[in-house]
Simulated scan of single mutants.
Amino acid sequence: MAAAGYRAVAMDLRGYGASDKTPRGYDPFTVAADVSGVVRSLGATDAVIVGHGWGGFVAWSTAVLAPKQVRAVGAVSAPHPLMLMRTAQPRAVAQVGWFQLPILPERRLLAHDGIHIERLLRDWSAPGGSFPDAEASRRYRAALQVWPAPHCALEYHRWFVRSRLRADGRRYSARMRTPVAVPVLQVHGALDGAVNAASTATTPPGLITGELRHAVLTKAGHFPHEELPEQFNKLLLDWLAGLEP
Rank of each mutant, 00 (worst) to 15 (best):
A3I: 08
A4F: 00
G5D: 01
Y6Q: 03
M11W: 14
L13E: 00
Y16H: 15
D20G: 05
K21S: 00
K21Q: 14
K21P: 02
T22W: 07
P23C: 01
P23F: 01
R24D: 15
R24T: 15
R24L: 09
D27F: 08
V31G: 06
A32V: 01
S36K: 07
V39L: 03
V39G: 12
R40W: 04
S41Q: 12
L42C: 09
G43L: 09
D46L: 02
A47Y: 02
I49V: 13
V50P: 06
V50A: 12
G53D: 13
G53Q: 09
W54C: 11
W54G: 01
G55Y: 00
F57V: 03
V58W: 02
W60C: 11
V64C: 02
L65A: 12
L65M: 12
A66W: 04
P67H: 06
P67M: 06
Q69L: 09
V70S: 01
V70F: 05
V70P: 14
G74M: 10
S77Y: 02
S77H: 00
H80L: 10
P81N: 06
L84H: 05
A88R: 06
A88L: 12
A88G: 08
Q89F: 05
R91Q: 09
A94L: 11
A94K: 12
Q95V: 12
V96G: 04
Q100R: 13
E106H: 12
R107T: 06
A111N: 10
H116W: 14
H116G: 06
I117T: 15
I117V: 15
E118A: 15
R119T: 08
L120Q: 13
R122L: 13
D123P: 04
S125D: 05
S125K: 01
P127H: 13
P127S: 05
G128M: 11
E135N: 12
A136S: 06
S137K: 02
R139P: 01
R139K: 02
A143C: 01
L144C: 07
Q145I: 07
V146K: 07
W147V: 15
W147F: 05
W147S: 10
A149M: 00
C152K: 09
C152V: 07
L154H: 02
L154D: 02
Y156F: 15
R158T: 02
A167P: 06
G169P: 03
R170N: 08
R170E: 13
R175K: 14
T178L: 10
A181L: 10
L185I: 11
L185D: 05
G189K: 03
A190F: 04
L191R: 13
G193N: 11
V195M: 01
A198G: 08
A198M: 11
S199M: 14
T200N: 04
A201V: 13
A201H: 09
A201Y: 03
P204K: 04
P205L: 13
G206Q: 08
L207G: 05
G210V: 06
R213A: 14
A215W: 13
V216D: 09
T218I: 06
T218W: 10
T218N: 09
A220N: 05
F223A: 00
E226I: 00
Q231I: 10
N233Y: 07
K234M: 07
L240M: 14
L240A: 09
A241I: 04
A241G: 07
P245M: 01
